[in-house]
Design a protein around this nucleic acid. Structure first.
Lengths: 195, 195, 195, 195
DNA sequence: CATGAATGAGTCTTCATTCAT
DNA sequence: TATGAATGAAGACTCATTCAT
């Protein structure tokens, strides 16, 4: 019984994901989301307080999914390099399905509730920590240079991965799944400098 | 006379910049933008076809400004490293004034006109080329490793700079102007790998 | 068995009375009434055809209660003056519990069904007759002036009682139970005129 | 210019009066009020913040009108009896046009804003004072009995007038304009008592 | 009999845009 | 040319009512 309700909640969130992604927050209509989920308009409001609430819960759900998948992918890998490649690949896969979400669907400043902002920060921190741990490990095993500024390195890796996927998709219309993460990680590992 | 019109056009765009940044596209009201520009609501429509048109022209104006400033900053610098640091610093300064723009103000997918999208791609390409040229130069002068994958390196640099600024501001509430670009560029230059 | 159903019907009506009084017709929600009655939302519809039906039956129930109590109170009294005072006192007691009903809960014109309006008229007529009979008696016993316009006198008494209670409660926040009915009746009996 | 806006404000209020009276607060649609006023739906919101605001301003406007007319009517009359008859007649005229307003259009408890409630109380007090002054005068001139309980007498008069009009209209479908106020006032003046 | 999950008709309100002045 | 009063399309949200369990 409880799981039935929970299942329908997920159904609605997944319908919302699709519609929000396609139309953005403001042009996505509740009625359309409901239809996509195969239910009536009013039913959405049995599960979520408002359009905003639905949006926030969707973000939370996606963030959790992203994080869990990233963790799994990285756990299997052994070396830091492999872990980062796994992360990049995961990022690409995820992005290929939820692409514009992050960039296009945002409803505007001051929109997210304070609680939600807190959640988002936590989530970003979790991702940060995921990379940070890998780097820490790499320094200990000697795989990475000992004088590394871990914080900046972490931000740089995340940025490099993110931008490489985003811009390749954007400029070259590549399917993110088909992007090879190896050269990205290689570049970050080896640096630009000629010695 | 023509320059009077042009000046008022700029005034409106600058008012729009402020208001769009503060409220995001959908919650920004034309009336408020008009008031901010010190004119009447209807007058906005003498200069722009629609809210969307105003938004697009604003984006274009800002992108041009960004690009011009980036070019100037990089021209002064000599080595590639200095150029990239100058770019990063410029990025930080610009972002400190127009921050949320990029992240929060976006109106939703399918919003920008095709022509606008084309403009945006051109703009991104210009930025890409700016960095690309610097790398090219670095390879020729031997400052950078000759086997560098320029495309990926460019994306990585842009991503690293962007994310470092964004996340430092986000997590640590640092004023972007106060961020030191050196360690970011150093990290990218030296790479992560322990040789 | 029949009385069990009847009892639950009364329970619902009493829950409805409380909720309608507190929120008014339109803001009173069936779900809340059901909860107040300790039953499920759907069950209300086993006993009443609609919200409107429930409202009308509630009014009818209250009116009957009012009338019965008024009759009892007046039967005990002997003189007309006493009867009117008893009526006034009863009115105050009743009003103290069901106050706003009459003033605040009314759903709007054209709302009550024709049958219901008929009921309401009958009810008002019954009250009218109650007072009318008392006056008739008073005229016969010589307690009241023989040339009295009974109809107008009855309306005036009802109005005087009603308004005195209402306005004292309204202006002076008096508990209706604590209002002394004697001076009201005295005023009506003696008239304003200085002989 | 200002008076044009003010005139339109009044137009809307008068349209609202008609529609609210016909349908009650909840069933009255803004669109219908706008149509009645010969304007577009959105225009209503240029003059009033919300349906509730419109309703409250309408009440205020009507109350002021009622009070002003009552004052005028009573000022012309000389004796207390005449004043009260004038008041009653005015009440009847007003009620004949705005009848159900008071009884049927009320939106429910807790609806009126605090400021509005305060206004309403002030208004009722003004009416009270109008009668109260007349009685005071009557006591001084010896037209009324000196031992009169003014407060209760005032409430009683208001109640008698109100109920006589309301019930005659209700029971006998009389047009309030056609009701003779003399016997009502006579009854109140002479009292019920056979000396 | 009782329930409460599902439903969708109904309406207020916002705001980009128009156009008479 | 500049204005701002007027407009109405569009959409989130409520809640009485139904009906499968």
């Amino acid at each position: 019984m409880n799981s039935l309700k929970e299942q329908k909640r997920i159904d609605i969130i997944e319908a919302a994901t699709k519609i929000f992604r396609r139309y953005g927050f403001h042009k996505a209509k509740i009625e359309v989301i409901a239809k996509e989920a195969g239910i009536g308009k009013g039913t959405v409001y049995e599960y979520f307080d408002s359009k905003k609430d639905l949006f926030e819960q969707m973000i939370k759900y996606m963030a959790e999914t992203y994080l869990n998948m990233a963790r799994e992918a990285m756990d299997i890998a052994e070396t830091v390099k492999e872990k980062l490649m796994a992360f990049a690949q995961h990022h690409g896969n995820f992005v290929s399905e939820h692409m514009d979400m992050a960039e296009n669907v945002i409803p505007g400043p001051g929109f997210l509730s304070e609680e939600m902002k807190y959640q988002m920060i936590e989530m970003k921190q979790s991702i940060f920590l995921l990379i940070d741990e890998a780097l820490e490990m790499g320094i200990e095993t000697g795989e990475l240079r000992p004088d590394l500024n871990k914080r900046i390195a972490t931000f740089s890796i995340l940025g490099a991965i993110n931008h490489n996927y985003a811009l390749q998709v954007y400029f070259e219309s590549v399917n993110p799944k088909d992007i090879d993460s190896r050269p990205i990680i290689d570049t970050v590992f080896n640096g630009l400098s000629n010695k």
